[in-house]
Amino acid sequence: MLFFLSFVVFLIGLYCVATRKNLLKIVMGIVIMEYAVNFFLILLGYRMGGVAPIVTEGVKEAKFVDPLPQAMVLTSIVISIATLAFIVAICIRIYQRYHTFDVTEIRRLKG
């Protein structure tokens, strides 16, 4: 059921990318899809009644959740901020060239 909900978030992001005309709305759709994928990966690694995978004094043999998706999602989050900055930089350059964020307008001017 939770997988289903994370998938709905992904579909909303896809809908946003496909239908919106504003360039920044498209960027926001991409960010929503990133969130949905991160959420899904963490959900895959969760274990019923598990604890965070950190060994503390005394607790040696606890029931840990899966540490592998967490490590991968950690890198994915940091990559997402860098790529977001890259996309925004390109958007600002496009705005400087065409003075608009409208995708149809940009397409028409390009010819």
Partner: peptide, 8 residues
């Protein structure tokens, strides 16, 4: 030792 690390 604790949550966190280089990225955070």
């Amino acid at each position: 030792l604790t949550p966190g690390g280089g990225f955070a």
